[in-house]
Design a protein around this nucleic acid. Sequence first.
DNA 1: CTGTTAGCGCCTTCAC
DNA 2: GTGAAGGCGCTAACAG
Lengths: 350, 350
Amino acid sequence: MTTIADIAKRAGVSVSTVSYVLSGKRPISQETQERVHAAIEELDYHPYAPGRALASRRTRQIAVLYPTESNGLTEFQLEFFTAAAEAAAGNRYAFQLSTAPVTERGLLNLIRGGAIDGLILMEVRLHDWRVDLLRKHGFPFTLIGRCADTEGIDFVDLDFEAAAELAVDHLAELGHRSVALILGGEEQQVSGYGPAVRSLAGFERALKNRGLNGTVIHGEASFESGHALAHRLAGMQEVAAVVVVSPGVLPGFVAGTYDVGRRIPEDLSLVTMVPQKYARIFTPALTTIDFPADQMGKLGAEMLIRRLEGGGDQAAHVLLRGELIAGRSTAPPATTQAQDAQTGTVAAGA
Amino acid sequence: MTTIADIAKRAGVSVSTVSYVLSGKRPISQETQERVHAAIEELDYHPYAPGRALASRRTRQIAVLYPTESNGLTEFQLEFFTAAAEAAAGNRYAFQLSTAPVTERGLLNLIRGGAIDGLILMEVRLHDWRVDLLRKHGFPFTLIGRCADTEGIDFVDLDFEAAAELAVDHLAELGHRSVALILGGEEQQVSGYGPAVRSLAGFERALKNRGLNGTVIHGEASFESGHALAHRLAGMQEVAAVVVVSPGVLPGFVAGTYDVGRRIPEDLSLVTMVPQKYARIFTPALTTIDFPADQMGKLGAEMLIRRLEGGGDQAAHVLLRGELIAGRSTAPPATTQAQDAQTGTVAAGA
DNA sequence: CTGTTAGCGCCTTCAC
DNA sequence: GTGAAGGCGCTAACAG
């Protein structure tokens, strides 16, 4: 194996010079640089990461913690991961996908093991022990979603409160006076799962503002559960408008709705919160509040990396607002034009 | 930071003893082991990966190479990744997702950089330079898909040839005499993309066996392209049965089919090759040949790890066969029973 | 602008 | 069954 010592010898310089040529951390004469680079070419040298990591105490690896048992958003997650991985690669960082360590011991092992420089946390709870632990140990991290106390920590989140309001407004404008909200399991409210808690808050606020009637329904993230919900909703005659927040129930819910003989949008207006790419799979295309998963992945990774590179004196708080894209699942034949547009509001502050 | 030296001192033993207690690579007396473990507890020691990696020349990291520009199967990829990540974690390996290095230089950097022990390759071509390069350098890897010469290399692949036959048989039994096959872009045939090449072969064989007429159509992996294909197919009156191999065209194709006033399955029988979970999203649920993405991810990771651990003297060749799951997209109201079953044939040999 | 050198934390050969 | 010691490849003081 070729090492910098070989390069040094070949180029007639010292090892540190080679190291500095590579890192650029101190000025090296043009001529020396060229000799070193020539040697690197000739000997086909590739820096050896573990050596580097041991000496510098940095691995240029980041990881995303994604608990598998979570209510998989499928399309969303994939876009998120690939965008994050690309952003990482663009900054010459490796991107690691970790599904395992939900235990304190596991997480400790991860951050003390020295294999990664920073972490991206998903599925964050309002009060999340992982956040507390990372903070306590001073380990760099970024949240996808956010906890209650965001003092000094980076996050990028979706504005589910605004999204729920937007959804209700949309349905109200279609003439509905009674709207149902379908969330994930009730334990999500209890455990303070952001999307569940905040969309509920936005929902209630919008109802009040508009003077509408509302019903909140919980369902598990499975096809069967969604299917059952459709049946249940069919029994509630007065409700012909529904907002589905939990993506997991969606396939079953839509299928179930047709199974009970209700058509979308003729008999039931539906607004969802999934990527447009996903919403468009359904027939007819669902109306959705489209959140830019790829932007989140990119931002999440970049925020973390910036912090790792020392640029993160000020915490970055990014709250993305989703845009409502009408499918054919709500109103009389709305626009079906493909549009990839999306908007986001970005705010920085402590 | 706590190191094994600290542990050694605390336990009153030498550093090598601590190391051996941790690795179990040589017999240590019960008593000594206990003292060491006690010290580890008290000092809250966590082994430091880079040190370990530098000394042992192994990182316990594997990576999957996933070219982003590929025709993303979304659902499939996500299931695959998470299953692979879990399998890796189960064997105490970290799982890395790499989207970047399509260049020879990038790949060389990756395998010479020492950051990973082995690679999983996706989107393999019949003649794939990456395979040649890895083979030449003796770097451990596993294929998802397979190349022409699989001598001595591990792979897990889907049997697209059998799948295409199965699809045609199914359609023939429904009474169709003329069947269309929708593939991805034509360049996939040229570049020898396995799924495209092999499903075409199976398609043609099945046509011949059954004495049917066939049409082959290529489309890009985009909504718009799929939409256009539906229009095009509508112009071919005699064809009321179609097999869609490329998942990318599916959403657009289905939407387009409805847009031209054709119903599925009443006016058009459709068989696809996507995960059932995905097929079920469509309304009505699509008939699909369901490949177990999670099994592939698990197997791919495990095969690689087994090889890394020295168990891989014999190359493992795994060819998974998909099961046809009838949705409501083909025949007169077929079974809609949810069934998660799947079968696979496993063959070992050089 | 360049060289010398002492580690980074751990593994493993060699000696006992 | 246990110790001692020499690296693994690279970085970053410290010297000039």
